[in-house]
Structure formats: structure tokens, C-alpha cells
Amino acid sequence: MGHMVELKVVRGDITRQDVDAVVNAANNRMRGGGGVDGAIHRAGGPEVLADCIRRFPDGLATGDAGWTTAGSMPARWVIHTVGPNYSAGERDRSLLTSCYRRSLEVADELGARTVAFPLISAGIYGWPKEDAIAAAVETIAAADTTVQEARLVAFDQATFELIRSAVGQAQ
């Protein structure tokens, strides 16, 4: 513990990242959904859903995280975390930062050294993008973790530029 995590910004598809664990922005039901969640379930195949059903029979609380197999993805594990739904009135920022902190704690339990994160809650959950990025960068940078590399994966160029700028300012 106690070393700095190397924070990398990547533009691309989170399901194709060759890392120990990819983080899924899940919903409370943990049965798949839209956005990143749907993409991860499609790419990982039915094993991911089967593992979700087995490990999370009652779903997962907002701000918490847990893991499953990554199925057919290059990663070994999926760390599922449930971000707050800003559009539905869940505006507590500590729930958002908890997603990153808990995901890294789960990564430590698994022995994962490389982890790829999406921008949690910034899609259909409507968290304002600049603050979603700030929450991610601040929390990952401050984490006491054995993870060596955390990737923030942006699907589009505009988001990639925003994250890269925020990471640059944080260093």
C-alpha cells in the first residue's frame, strides 16, 4: 500500500481493455442494462449474468461494488459498482466517490494490478460530466491501493479530452 496509482486516460471500448479487471457501471438490480452495463454483459456473455445472479441475488446498493467473472472479455474480472442516478434525484457526491473507492478495495481483494474504469454515473444517470470526471480523478489519486494502473476509458473524443485535461491538472 501507499504508492501512487498511475492514472491513464484511454479512448476506446472498455470491454476490449487488456487489464486484470474492468469496472461496470451497473444498476441496483445487477441484471444488465443500457450503456456500459449492456456492453459489458454482451461482451462477457451469459457467464457474467449467471455470476451476477449467483453472487448478488438481491442486487447491490448504490455506492457499493462487487465482482464477477469477465466471461469472454480479455479481463479476468468485472468489478460491478452502482453509481447514483443524478437524473432521478440521487445527488449525494459521496455515493459517486464511494464507487471508485469500493471498486479499488475489491480490486485489492482480488489482487488486480490493472483496472479500467468507465466514467461512472455520467451517462444516462446524468451526473454533470466535469464533476463526474473530478470525482473519478480525485478519488483514484487519493486511494490507498495496491492497484498499479487505473485507466479511465472514454468512449468519445470530447470526453477523452476533458478527462485528459483534468488528469493533467491533478498531476
Rank of each mutant, 00 (worst) to 15 (best):
A26Q: 10
R29E: 11
R54T: 15
W67C: 14
A135C: 15
G59P: 04
S121M: 08
A135I: 01
H41V: 02
T68E: 10
G89K: 08
E130R: 15
F117Y: 08
T114Q: 06
V23L: 07
E47N: 13
I79N: 09
D37H: 05
A70C: 09
G66C: 09
A75V: 00
T139G: 04
Y100A: 09
N24S: 04
V115N: 01
C52S: 10
P57D: 01
A134F: 02
K129R: 13
P128A: 13
A26T: 06
W77V: 02
R113E: 13
W67Q: 14
N28P: 14
C52E: 10
P118G: 00
C99Y: 02
A61D: 15
A61K: 12
G71W: 07
I40H: 02
G44N: 14
T62K: 12
S72M: 12
N24M: 04
I40K: 08
L110P: 05
G111W: 07
M73P: 01
D51M: 06
G123A: 13
G45P: 11
K129Y: 09
D51Y: 04
D51A: 14
I120E: 01
M30R: 01
N27S: 10
E47D: 15
L119W: 06
P74L: 12
A135F: 11
R31D: 02
G45T: 11
